[in-house]
Design a protein around this nucleic acid. Sequence first.
DNA 1: ATCGGCGTCGTAAACGTTTACGGAAACTAT
DNA 2: ATAGTTTCCGTAAACGTTTACGACGCCGAT
Lengths: 337, 337
Amino acid sequence: MKGIRQLAEHLDISIGTVSRALNGKTDVNPQTRQRVLEAAERLGYVANQSGRSLRKGSTGVIGFMMQTGPEITGQGDTFFMSVFDGVQTVLARHSLDLVALLCSSSEDPDAYLQRTVARGFADAVILSATRRNDARFELLDRHKIPFISLGRSLTDVGQPWIDLDFEGMAEIAMERFVRAGHREIGVIWPNGDLNLGHLFVERCRDVLARHGLALPDEHIFRAKPSETGGYEVAQEIAGRPRRPTAVALVNETLVTGLYKGLEEAGIRPGKDIAIVGRHSPHTQFLSPALTGFSLSLHELGICLAESLLSVMPGYQGHYTGVSRRIWPMTLVEGASG
Amino acid sequence: MKGIRQLAEHLDISIGTVSRALNGKTDVNPQTRQRVLEAAERLGYVANQSGRSLRKGSTGVIGFMMQTGPEITGQGDTFFMSVFDGVQTVLARHSLDLVALLCSSSEDPDAYLQRTVARGFADAVILSATRRNDARFELLDRHKIPFISLGRSLTDVGQPWIDLDFEGMAEIAMERFVRAGHREIGVIWPNGDLNLGHLFVERCRDVLARHGLALPDEHIFRAKPSETGGYEVAQEIAGRPRRPTAVALVNETLVTGLYKGLEEAGIRPGKDIAIVGRHSPHTQFLSPALTGFSLSLHELGICLAESLLSVMPGYQGHYTGVSRRIWPMTLVEGASG
DNA sequence: ATCGGCGTCGTAAACGTTTACGGAAACTAT
DNA sequence: ATAGTTTCCGTAAACGTTTACGACGCCGAT
């Protein structure tokens, strides 16, 4: 089936009526609509995306930008796939499609986004892996592209965001360590300029200061956001003359490597060193069981989608008020700290 | 910057010449081309995707279809992110963009693909998670959409594919078990109808038969392709009266749960039961170290892209001969089996 | 001086769809 | 019977590009 023209000729109806029938307009006889729908179904006709969005000025596509490469920035594996699923449950109700915009590791993320949105590839965008000062915010704002972000940034153009409660994590983790009597407390800070790292470390420092404790530089460990990164941090910890007795980390993927590295150095998690981290499918079978924060990814996805719709012209009526939100995480107690 | 018309007016050049200048056609004065490119750069003009692809009949977009949801089918998603990166290194040379087509877990994959390609959303598609009889192959063939698949299927429409060497895995794993004196050998088969599971199990059965051994049904364990699935299989193994002394598995994500479940049941991996599986970033810190197969994901991505280009009209000249390929994996010996 | 060729550019027609507009028929109310 | 209203449908313009075609000016060759 080539196009709507063929379909119209085949039905001996005008092209305009066919289009209206397919798009659910009111001014079309129910009977002819039926005929059109049946023929379209039978012949496998689907409106061409380019023609449609050229005319309408919108594509019906929502882009979720992420970077490819061996090291996921920020979150681990199944994280995004679960979030996507939640996003889609909402978008599907509005006939919107979600695609992942994949930025190669060899391309500058800002340039990629510029190229992609200026083309008019997607109607709206969800950003993740937000940096401390994220130029993508201003770029999308300049282009008047509706967007939201999973994560805050110091650059703020007024868009909605949802961010995991890393500061709450810091509060609870640090208080927990202090209450357990720890005095030498460390933090693992994933490499790169992700804002979540800044937020977490700063809050940790604040909480410790409230208790008259310091967070010295030598207790802040930078790590690649991967299993190997965790392993390397463990080696670093083991090598330090002044060794922390408790560490908190914000990254899902580090922890397995961390456990392993510590054990090899004779430092037993949960006994010689307390650990508080993040829960994920990958961490659920560690032993000792990880004390960590978990969250509902599906719900998060739903909330993201609703926030996005609230800034998209034509959809604002449905979802409103969901502007900015700190996403709660719950502590699941294990034996690690 | 609205469109090419504005840009042309601003430069006082005809719209046709501007287009030719931007698209690198030969019949344009080098000096005016320079002017056009500078103005486009300065004003941030990028050709509208819909208009362009409507006229050209192609989009410049390659889709990689994957299913969202909490349980990744088959592979973990650091897997895909690494493969994507390899794919992109090749596609970028041809100004092709890769996007992930995300099929919601609540939508039928075949219907999703139908909807998406009939719209003309992408010029070509890469399929993954191929099923035993995958209707998507015929669908894409009917629509004359160039595509390749990561994984074989019994339905064959002549497209190129690349498949990991699961049969080679079966050969080596089974031979290894037999040589080590195992007589009760089991296989873990991920749920669903992925063809790789069939291929693996069948070949395991064949190899064992060569040695006069059987692969009874009670030694074939179906599992959810997730950490939890591995844990549940472990419990099942532990509960069986006739317990395998060696198991092979084909899935990256199962193994951590499997280890844990076995240990809880007092069955020590590498001692009481031999395990051969797949290596991934998540499995590298297991103890005892996993004996498993690994592969170069980046290279795999490159090969996928080249195969795809070889079936895309207009690109065939560059890449040829790469039609179907069993992708080798290398055994990394650990202490688990 | 004429002609062909080359380099450069403008014009206009497509690509497939949606939708504003207007018109024809049928129906309702007077 | 007439006017007004409603229901349905056809016509054509528009969306932003790319590209076939032709035109213009300039050069060198005859």
